[in-house]
Design a protein around this nucleic acid. Structure first.
Lengths: 157, 157
DNA sequence: TGCATTTAATATGTTAACATATTATATTTG
DNA sequence: CAAATATAATATGTTAACATATTAAATGCA
């Protein structure tokens, strides 16, 4: 369908990876949000709690800046969401052993219990959402990793 | 790296398509935001204006609900962002010819000028961002479309 | 060692994304 | 036709994502 207008280089919006990526993520987030309601968690809260749990299994001291780097949630958002989670009793924040600027973050028993259940919910949800990709899921992951890595020149955890 | 914990079914967070998808989109949005600053547009504003322009070339009357469906931005967000764009003088909203509930939306001359420049910026940005995919970009698009399409046919609430 | 530079966290303010509920109008159907 | 239902837009309120700027402490280096 050719038109007289030459604003777009794509003949269909469906050929734009950016537009598609964003739309898929909108959809994914919208549905995941509903799936997380039963745990009384938002997506950001879930990601941070899951990452704390994950990092705690591999690191000693999980600080907010480490969390921010791992999740790619910016430090300010990380700070405010963690405060909410602390108010919910799902985590504690205490002064770092050697760096008094930093705060060490950890899940409470209550938090651990919640996140374990939530992880099951999310993994089940993702299995359904990405089901159509079938065995091509790994290939999809590889492409996403490629896009992530291009910008990654800084220090990693 | 095996641990005693069995919360996660993935041994690495990098194997989770949901986590990766979300992270790539965060990165993409963050950088696109900066690229759009020179046009004084947010991403949502850009998407809506580009879609109005696009739809106007293919449809007669672009209503807010049509825009919402096309962009997958929810109707409420669509409404408020369009109001902002109207205040900026980039678009008009007038009563629909036959459906008095609806509003027909269109770009002003000023809006058209801005969006044409912004589209160039975004297409250039996307070319760089998705550059690492090379000729696999089309395959990436296909996978994203697959994920989008499942919902269109799927169970409706 | 002392001073400049980084860095960790956060106060403040803007826009987005969404839920829920409401208003007004359109459409369906009994 | 009238009543029930669906739809287009929006008021109100919550959380997220981010920018900018600030505070205080760690680190670099001359």
């Amino acid at each position: 369908m050719k038109t007289a207008d030459n604003t777009f280089s794509f003949d269909k919006a469906e050929d734009s990876p950016g537009f598609l990526l964003w739309q898929v993520t909108l959809l994914w987030q919208r549905e995941l949000k509903k799936a997380l309601e039963k745990h009384d968690l938002t997506h950001a809260q879930y990601v941070l709690m899951a990452s704390i749990h994950w990092l705690a299994l591999h690191h000693e001291q999980v600080t907010q800046i480490v969390l921010s780097a791992h999740t790619k949630i910016d430090p300010m958002t990380t700070s405010t969401v963690l405060r909410t989670l602390q108010a919910k009793g799902f985590l504690f924040r205490q002064e770092h052993a050697t760096d008094t600027r930093a705060k060490t973050v950890g899940l409470t028993e209550s938090g651990k219990k919640v996140i374990k259940q939530a992880v099951r919910t999310v993994e089940k949800f993702d299995a359904t959402f990405f089901g159509p990709l079938g065995e091509k899921t790994h290939d999809f992951n590889k492409k996403l990793l490629l896009l992530l890595k291009q910008k990654e020149n800084g220090p990693e955890e």
